[in-house]
Each structure stands twice: as C-alpha cells, then as structure tokens.
Design a protein around this nucleic acid. Structure first.
Lengths: 350, 350
DNA sequence: AATCCCACGTGGAGTC
DNA sequence: GACTCCACGTGGGATT
C-alpha cells in the first residue's frame, strides 16, 4: 500500500469542517518552489537558498562546525510562525469564521517534500513465531542482562581510533541523500502531527507531546463511547420492534379494546404475520428475523397451503429483519380464511 | 497545563488490557548508569564509555566531529529490539478476542538500566482473564523513578574546543542540561507514541509515521462511528410506532375497531398506512386504491419527508388495490417518529 | 547496496 | 536566566 504524502493528507486530512479548528493548513505551500531550490542547491553553496526566516541572521560560517561532515548548513531552519490565539474551542459552530481567526502554526515549515515518490507503509507483516506465548517476557530480562554485560565489556576495552578509520559508513555523496531523506521523513512526520492535531478537538497546547497525549485521551474516550453506544444499539435493535396492533395481525388474540393508544408496542415476537384475503387473492406480509432460508421457507409454506404465488418481495429492514410480502391466489375450490392462513404460517415458521 | 511524564502515563496510559497488544513498554532504561558515565567521560577520551551496541565497531574518534561542541558521544545509543509478531486486525468488533496476539516493539529501548531502576509505565493489569491467557506481555513492574533524570552537577572541568568562536549560546554547563532535557523530552514523546500505538488497533507497521497515520485514520472513523451511533441513539428513543387504523392517529376518534374479528379485511377506508422505524431505517407499507400515479406519489411524498428511498415494491392485490412497501433511510440530522410519518403521508395522500 | 527508521546532540526561538 | 520546544544533521541498526 502506497500513499504519497500529498494523497495522504487528503485521505486522513482535515477536510472535516467540524473539527477544523486547529492548525491552519497552509503547510503545503512550499512544495514546488522549494523543490527547485532543492535541486539547485549543491554542496558548494547555500547562498541561494531561500531563507524563510525573516530575522535570518544566521551566520553560515558556523556551518562547518554545526555539520562538520558535509559542511552543510541546515538549509531550513525555520521560524515557528505561531501566531496563535488561544484555541477557542468552538466546535462545529462557526466554520465560516475559521479562516478569519486562522491560527497558523506548523511543526515544520521547512521546504522540500516533492511528494512524488515517497514510499512508506508497505504493510507487509509476516507473522513470525506466533506460538511462543512468552517471548515478550523473555526478551526483556535478557535485554537487561545483555546490556549490562555490554557495559562491562565496553568500558574495559574501547579504543577510540583517532583517525576515524573504521566504518566510514557514508560517503559524502550519500550523506546528502541521507540528509534529504531524513528531511523528508521529518516532514512526513510533522504533517501527520498537524493532521492529527486538526482532528483532535479541544487541545490546548500544540506541541507534539501534548498533541499526542490529548489524542490518546481523546481516542480512548471515543473508544469508550463507541463501546457504550454499540451496546446500547445492540440492545435496542433486539427490541426495536414494534407494535403493530396485534389485533388484526394474529388471529388468536382477542382484540379490539385492548390496545389503546398506538404506542403499545407490546412486542410480539417475530415473526409477525399478517394476511388478508380478497376474493381469491391473498396478501401475506411477514416481518421476521433475517435468517438463512427464511424467504424460501415462507414461499414454500405458502404454496403448501394451496396457494399459487403471483408475486413476492423481500426487503431488508434494519440489520436483522426482513419484510416479506407475498401476493398469491387460491387454487380453485379452495378457500381459507386469513385467520387460518396466519395460523398455518405461524406454525410452519415457528 | 503541563503534565509530567510520569503522571502522564498513568493518566492516559495503556492500562486497558483490551487494547494492550502493541509495543512492549520497556523503554526508559538509560538512566543511572549512563549518568555516571556521563560524568566520567570527558573530552580527552571516550575509552570508558560503554558501547551498548553489540556490534560495537564504532570508532569514536569521530565523536569530536559528531558532537563538536561538547565532545560527548551519545550515551545511549540503543539497540532496537523489535521482536514482533503479527497483528490481527480486529476492529472494535470482538473485544474479547482482540488481544490474542501481542506485538512487541519499542521506539526507544535503550538498555543499561540494571533492572532495579527501570522505569516505564506502570500498567497495572488486573487479570480479567476473559479471553484467557493472553495478557502476559505486560507484567513488568514499572515505576517511573524520577531519579533517572537527575543531572549530575558540575564536573565539567574541561573547556573543550577553545576555538568555538561566535555565539556561544550555551556554556558547557548548561549544555549538559540541555542534553538531558532533550533526552527527557524525546523519552516523553516516545512514550506517547508507544501508548498511542497500544490503543490503535490493527496497525501493521509500527514506525512513528505509520502509527500516527493509522491513529488518524482510526480516530476519524471512530468519530464517524460515534456520530452515527449517537444519532441512532437519539432516534431510538422515539421508537417505532405504528399506525394502523387511523382511528387513533388522527384526532377524530376511532371507528369502532370492534370489527376486527371479521378477517374480511379492510373495512377501514384506504389508504391504510403503516410505518415503523428502526434507527435510521424506515419501513412504510401502504395499502391503497389502485390509481394512476399512486405509487409515484407515494415515493415522492416519502422523499419529501427527508427520507432516502432504499427500496420499494408495489404489488397488486385484488383488482383494485395496491400494496406498496418502501424501505427508506432518514437523512442525517433528521428524525421523525413513525406516528408523524404516518400522519404526514396520510395528509399527502388524502 | 539501498532504504528506512530511529535516537542522538545541538543551535535557536519562544515563553515564563 | 531557566525552561520548553523544535528542526536539523548524523551515525547506526534493520530490512531487503
């Protein structure tokens, strides 16, 4: 799975107007222009680099000290434009006014990020050694002991090699790629921080740790809330039923005066069966739990009652119930009352 | 408001065993031992520094280059023990089975830490043992001892790097404090990453960017889910009612429902309208006289009620009547009771 | 060999 | 002045 950084924002971005109240999103404006500069700059000079900092009193002679290997001065020491006012936590109230009081902050104003071909998140997890139940217990003490040993050894002999002989791990050529890659990585991370802070409501401080912390808190309470709501919903659906007036639905009940106002919803358990007869035509309506073979069973049972099915329809209603409507015709020289019809069907579907 | 790292973890920590399935929690290790070394090492030599890296082919003469200001080599280059096994992406469905697989990874688990002063977050797990046998990955006693970040005072006898002209922004005394503070800050951030990754289910990759990205996605869908569920819940309270005979719906009093036992159906005047509501789903059934434009009118009137029609069916019954069944969904922010629905439809079809 | 990811130390800006 | 926060470049481990 490959997501470019540009797409990423649009995917988990902050387009939701409700939660759009932190972090102005203009942190992408540097893409192309800076990219040019990015290419143009090379090892010899950074004078052409656009210093975004208006103060920009950076003395670049210190660069040799700061980055001794490459001699690169950090090309993008950015200013933190945190013109930011007090996080008025107005949720979903005035989204029109959001632009006016646009807070502008960015964890990383630097440039670069061509967003053309970055790859991450390839999502290939190969589960290894599932069986071991306790390997996480294991490696913790081992790690400690190991490390302590390492300390002992390391302190004893550790020559330090004055010429930097050993592993010249990066040639200066690749060192720059390294820098670039690192910069890109930071950029990506910062973007995600921004995106995260945009969807976490009500956060007071905008530093990374606080954003993360508040996000965690928020996430937990969202999870809790979902859990509760789902339990409620699951409970409700079971009895989201309805009352109909049993009066005319089931034949067996006595009727009439019993149910007063409509809210009686004395839920009679599904299936709920209603039938009516008009001449030789029969209309059957069944509201039942969604189960396999349910519709077929209804039809076959109907036909067993010497009815010829003219038309039928099955509609889902909610998550777990079906509404089945059948129009049939009685065969010749056969007659059945609606009451008997309901009774027979109920028996068959019980 | 600022939360110390120690308090923070216990506050939004990952004590919830349900979601405790990523990231082993040991990450605070380099404390005292490193601190000692911190004192002992000076500018002239790094021989006594414990190289924690098992490969440890480091040539540290380059350290003067790496950290030109202080000459300190990083005291806690840690190894990344990322023993990791798969993750089952079960999202908020089966809570009990969610913790079957446990991953272990840590963004920052530098070692050293002689097991006495290990500090990482205290996940006081009460054995709920519902799913049984799967929360053994977190029985580390943890106590975030404040001592780790104790900074040694003084002992910086060396004035390393005398040339160091220009803005000496930090005296070497404070430079170490800076290092320590920075280390603490990083530690806090890493802890939060760990905590976050522990409560985001189903994340495939555990690097920071992915954790953040998945957390954002997850958070958004949680928000969406909460929104939907809350709407449903608000709607559920007004639960489905039915109208059968208009008798009791409209103010005019009923018409002697005493007729019911005669199943000969329908001596109440058509149209006969019934509605039921389950969450956002609405089922409407209308039995009316067969007339031109009848079905279309029903549908259009239904849609006028801020309902989105999911499915509809029209069946003829007898020679002169139709049976119309409609399944629809309420639009967002719209709520109507079955009773009102019937009333409106009746008015419209009158 | 290339790439990714991470922690590190460090300068600098902002804030109390 | 102390403290916080951040981005930076850099070495190095891991994975491929």
């Amino acid at each position: 799975m490959e997501i470019s950084s540009a797409n990423w924002i649009s995917e988990v971005g902050v387009e939701d107007p409700i939660f759009m109240h932190q972090y102005d999103m203009n942190s992408f404006d540097y893409s192309i222009l800076d990219e040019l500069n990015f290419e143009s700059l090379s090892a010899e000079s950074y004078s052409s680099y656009p210093d975004l900092n208006p103060k920009s009193a950076h003395s670049f002679n210190g660069s040799a000290i700061e980055n001794p290997h490459t001699g690169l001065e950090s090309p993008a020491k950015q200013l933190k434009t945190s013109s930011w006012n007090s996080c008025t936590t107005d949720r979903m109230t005035s989204m029109a006014a959001s632009s006016s009081s646009s807070k502008l902050i960015s964890f990383e104003n630097s440039n670069s990020a061509p967003a053309t071909s970055q790859k991450f998140l390839d999502c290939t997890v190969k589960p290894k050694n599932e069986a071991g139940s306790d390997l996480r217990n294991m490696n913790f003490p081992t790690m400690i002991s190991e490390s302590s040993l390492e300390i002992q050894n390391g302190s004893s002999k550790h020559e330090q090699d004055p010429k930097r002989v050993g592993t010249v791990t990066r040639t200066p050529l690749h060192a720059r790629d390294h820098v670039m890659a690192e910069r890109k990585r930071r950029e990506k991370l910062s973007q995600r921080f921004i995106a995260l802070s945009a969807i976490v409501p009500g956060l007071k401080k905008m530093d990374k740790a606080s954003v993360l912390g508040d996000a965690i808190k928020y996430l937990k309470q969202l999870q809790e809330r979902v859990k509760i709501l789902e339990e409620q919903a699951a409970m409700k659906t079971t009895k989201s039923v309805v009352s109909v007036k049993k009066a005319r639905l089931s034949a067996d009940d006595d009727i009439s005066s019993s149910d007063d106002n409509s809210d009686s919803h004395s839920e009679h358990p599904l299936p709920e069966i209603e039938a009516r007869v008009s001449g030789k035509n029969v209309l059957i309506r069944i509201h039942c739990d969604k189960s396999k073979g349910c519709a077929a069973k209804i039809l076959s049972e109907t036909e067993k009652l010497d009815l010829t099915i003219i038309s039928s329809n099955v509609l889902p209603f909610g998550n777990s119930t079906l509404n089945v409507t059948v129009v049939a015709q009685m065969d010749d020289d056969f007659c059945i009352t609606a009451k008997d019809l309901v009774r027979n069907l109920r028996r068959a579907l019980a």
